[in-house]
Design a protein around this nucleic acid. Structure first.
Lengths: 333, 333
DNA sequence: CTGTTAGCGCATTCAT
DNA sequence: ATGAATGCGCTAACAG
């Protein structure tokens, strides 16, 4: 189908080798200008494109990096991917994307496939699931960098955002604003450790300021809007003196759901109850009131991840890294 | 680094060929059970993984499909990618993802690279930009399927969603609700034809019902929240009798911005002014009031796109297709 | 300045 | 039932 280097060689009456030299500019000026031009012309005429896969077979690297994540449509993942892409591009690298939908079997499958594809490295957003053996095998073969999460007991580098600190910052900020009763809507399920880390940060901040956490206003809500809405309802049923004056939600969506419910109950935000979210989703500033939240360096993390991967590929060791989240103060607090 | 088929062969004292047979189950039962087991064991012990790139070089297909889009973080793109991924996976295909950020030069670069990677096909979301020559060359070499948009004059199949119809449906719905003065916030820029098609649908619906479009309430706003907010302000300055009773916005975000401004002016939605958006972004039902909007089959389109691509790869011709959008009625209208 | 040769990892005739 | 030989497209020593 596609023209090969042989076709070009035959058509221009030179050897395959000369064609390769011309096209790759190896041994510059070691090919006569005349031959050079002829090869170039024929190559263009035939629409010749070198096969990167043949090159990959020959050489040591495929210029491919795999990305394995639970869900591409999760906005922070998409943003991270954009970051990865932007630096990958500069170095002639391409990204192979896989979504596991939280199914650990797929993590295994994809890691395997990527290995077979001979990618130069894998960026992996693991959930807290038992696939250590496979991982070890794969990581033994190529560079694997964990992002956002890391599996306990895996001696593999990870690029993380300090979720504990995020939880701490949000809570500490509210306390310093004068709040003493601060509720927390958590998403502390077992497969994603972020929620429990944020929760831990929350408790630590309370402790630092000598406030006893009250389990009555720490509610498991999951990640979604509805969870926040319903949990807010529970808060509203509390006797007045038990009611919190502030809320730290584990997710912007949860915060939003809660805000909605609070407003329906006639409460005003932030006067009656202050709210801080987490994630800085792209519509956080459009919520009414604009949401104070914790922001993670999404694109940045993607860029750095790819940078580190590139370095690893060129032989340097990979380093783990811990990013700090950032408090974005808006009007909801 | 990684073990090759040779290593396995040597280690298990058989020929490369036999290993290949065992691992691929070719000529079933033509290999003695004993040899078979030995090969399998050694293979596992060495952690052998066949190189798909060698296989790709040998064979005719690489099991790779490229995806070129302006922006992965755009939510409808991410959803489409999920659809693509889900079927690709079932057929052992992998997706190479590229974002052009609207830069036509990158469309060219990526198309080229993908060609060199010898992908089996490309799913391409083109903007309305002049890269026809390159496209023709690439498409001559492998399957290219346009999605969401199609370039004028390109004899290449496309999977589209009927934007005209979406605009028509939204407007027609509002008219049937009794509205006579319906504003439109458009995003009719030249690189993305969706906006103009929606606008055209809007005008056509008006015409069908014998309503003259009033350019005064057709405002170019772009895609973003701010555009809607500001345009709403212009509407509010209109003398009362000139003011529209309904708005069809080219984007949910624009609709949301407008709603915000209307509410600030003390108007109630939908009583004072009904609003219909476009896209059905995932938070459309969380807006206050929940937004009536036009929904596109995002994941579905991705799935079908990949299906068609797979068919094309297996030799059948590709067919264009036009999906219908759907009106989702919520409370804002 | 240019061509010959070999080899990357694998699947596939064709022999044995 | 198994092995030797070949070729996929390309690059890189090595010759000439």
């Amino acid at each position: 189908m596609a023209a090969t280097i042989k076709d070009v060689a035959r058509e221009s009456g030179v050897s395959v080798c000369t064609v390769s030299r011309v096209l790759n500019n190896t041994y510059r000026n070691k090919v006569s200008e005349e031959t050079r031009q002829r090869v170039l012309d024929v190559s263009k005429k035939l629409g010749y494109r070198p096969s990167l896969i043949a090159r990959g077979l020959k050489g040591k690297t495929t210029n491919l990096v795999g990305l394995v994540v639970p869900d591409i449509a999760a906005s922070f993942v998409a943003n991270t991917l954009m970051g990865i892409q932007s630096v990958a591009e500069d170095y002639g690298y391409s990204i192979l994307v896989y979504a596991t939908l939280g199914n650990p079997q797929k993590d295994i499958d994809y890691l395997r496939i990527l290995q077979e594809k001979r990618v130069d490295g894998i960026l992996w957003l693991p959930l807290n699931q038992p696939i250590h053996e496979v991982f070890e095998e794969v990581a033994n073969d190529l560079h694997v960098l964990q992002i956002y999460n890391h599996l306990e007991g895996l001696k593999a580098p990870a690029l993380l955002v300090n979720q504990f600190k995020g939880g701490y910052m949000a809570t500490d900020y509210l306390i310093k604003k004068g709040h003493q009763r601060i509720a927390h809507f958590s998403a502390a399920n077992v497969t994603d450790m972020h929620g429990v880390q944020r929760l831990t940060g929350y408790k630590e901040a309370l402790k630092t300021h000598n406030i006893n956490p009250d389990e009555q206003i720490i509610i498991e809500t999951g990640y979604h809007w509805d969870g926040g809405y319903k949990a807010a309802e529970r808060l509203l049923k509390l006797p007045a003196k038990k009611r919190p004056t502030a809320l730290f939600a584990s997710t912007d969506m949860v915060a939003w759901g809660a805000i909605k419910r609070f407003k329906q109950a006639g409460l005003s935000i932030p006067d009656d109850i202050a709210v801080v979210g987490y994630d800085d989703i792209y519509i956080a500033d459009k919520i009414d009131p604009p949401l104070t939240t914790i922001s993670q360096p999404k694109e940045k993390l993607g860029q750095v991840a790819m940078d580190i991967m590139l370095q690893a590929i060129s032989g340097e060791p990979m380093t783990s890294m811990l990013f700090d989240p950032e408090l974005i103060v808006r009007c909801s607090s």
